[in-house]
Computed example of a mutant assay.
Amino acid sequence: MDKGYTVFEDLAVKDYQEVWDYQEQLFAEVVDVKLHNRDNTSDLKPITNHLLFVEHPHVYTLGKSGVQNNLLINEQFLKQINATFYKINRGGDITYHGPGQLVGYPILDLEELGLTVKTYIHNLEEAIIQTLAEYGIKSERLDGATGVWLDTTVPGKSRKISAIGVKASRYVSMHGFALNINTDLSYFNHINPCGFVDKGVTSMEKELGRKIDMQEVKDLLLKKLVEIFNLQLNK
């Protein structure tokens, strides 16, 4: 059987629910092929993985292990700031998505790629760390937490620049990462980001003191993801 390829799509700006539904559709298609191959070894089909890039309108999402009290505002205030709220089926607690933030959703057969869920998350972090390094931003992992952070060893200074929350079932991934590029960070004031009450958030724009070219970051991060995951890309 030929090894499958990965279809990359840049969805530009799209509603969170619309993209969540699309993810579910793609996820089901990958799982269906896996189940077919398990039961029909003489008629194996290649797996088609997917990688989606998108920006969302203002939205807060709460993972299945999250605490709703980490959303610090009520439904009326959500409407005032033109934001929506969803409880979703990824891991992790609460996070924010919005304009100026690059969200990535890899729907990958981790088994085919020879990855555990832990290694998969590590690789996502690595692609973002390497991308930020190209801009002179030194970032790292924080023990006991997912995502990409700055100044993790400086008391009171550690801050998150990229959140990661994934779901994996039958070793197929869903959801993914969010990298703050030109994000309006004031929206994080209305939550305890990822459940933390003692750590801040930041963006590439804030760290570098200038607006960042979103397309340039997309191109660079896509290149890093393809290299690190050894993906055969079909745009």
Score class of each variant (00 low, 15 high):
102 L>T: 14
140 E>V: 04
138 K>S: 12
184 D>G: 13
55 E>Y: 02
125 E>C: 05
9 E>L: 04
153 T>V: 09
90 R>A: 05
63 G>L: 11
59 V>N: 06
95 T>M: 08
205 E>P: 05
134 E>R: 08
94 I>N: 03
78 L>E: 13
72 L>I: 13
62 L>S: 13
102 L>F: 10
144 G>I: 05
199 K>E: 00
75 E>V: 06
171 Y>R: 15
69 N>F: 03
95 T>R: 01
210 R>T: 02
206 K>E: 00
28 A>E: 01
183 T>A: 05
45 K>C: 07
83 A>D: 11
26 L>T: 07
228 I>K: 04
72 L>Q: 05
103 V>M: 08
174 M>S: 13
104 G>V: 14
235 K>Q: 14
197 V>E: 04
81 I>Y: 06
220 L>A: 12
138 K>P: 02
217 V>S: 07
197 V>G: 03
197 V>K: 14
125 E>H: 02
81 I>L: 12
178 A>Q: 12
207 E>P: 01
68 Q>F: 15
66 G>R: 04
119 T>P: 01
115 L>M: 12
27 F>H: 05
66 G>Y: 07
199 K>F: 04
33 V>L: 04
152 T>K: 01
116 T>S: 14
12 A>P: 05
59 V>H: 06
111 E>F: 01
70 N>V: 13
29 E>V: 15
91 G>D: 06
141 R>G: 06
53 F>G: 08
131 T>Y: 10
101 Q>K: 11
155 P>G: 09
214 M>Q: 08
209 G>R: 08
169 S>P: 01
156 G>N: 03
18 E>W: 07
188 F>T: 10
50 H>P: 01
207 E>R: 02
96 Y>G: 07
199 K>Y: 03
88 I>M: 03
70 N>F: 06
189 N>F: 01
222 L>F: 06
233 L>M: 14
30 V>W: 00
37 N>P: 03
105 Y>A: 12
84 T>D: 11
223 K>C: 03
203 S>F: 02
100 G>E: 02
17 Q>F: 15
42 S>W: 05
102 L>G: 12
106 P>S: 11
129 I>R: 09
50 H>D: 10
1 M>Q: 14
126 E>W: 06
46 P>T: 08
198 D>Y: 15
191 I>K: 01
56 H>A: 02
81 I>D: 12
72 L>S: 00
114 G>K: 15
28 A>Y: 00
63 G>M: 07
157 K>M: 10
21 D>T: 06
72 L>G: 05
221 L>R: 13
139 S>I: 00
223 K>D: 08
162 S>H: 10
229 F>A: 11
74 N>P: 02
20 W>A: 15
65 S>L: 15
42 S>G: 09
192 N>D: 08
9 E>M: 11
185 L>K: 13
42 S>R: 11
78 L>V: 09
34 K>W: 00
176 G>M: 09
108 L>Y: 10
128 I>K: 02
50 H>R: 07
58 H>W: 10
73 I>G: 07
4 G>C: 09
71 L>M: 02
169 S>D: 10
57 P>I: 04
152 T>A: 11
149 W>H: 12
61 T>I: 12
53 F>L: 07
152 T>P: 02
53 F>K: 03
198 D>G: 06
183 T>C: 13
148 V>D: 03
189 N>K: 11
18 E>T: 10
71 L>E: 05
32 D>P: 00
136 G>E: 15
9 E>C: 08
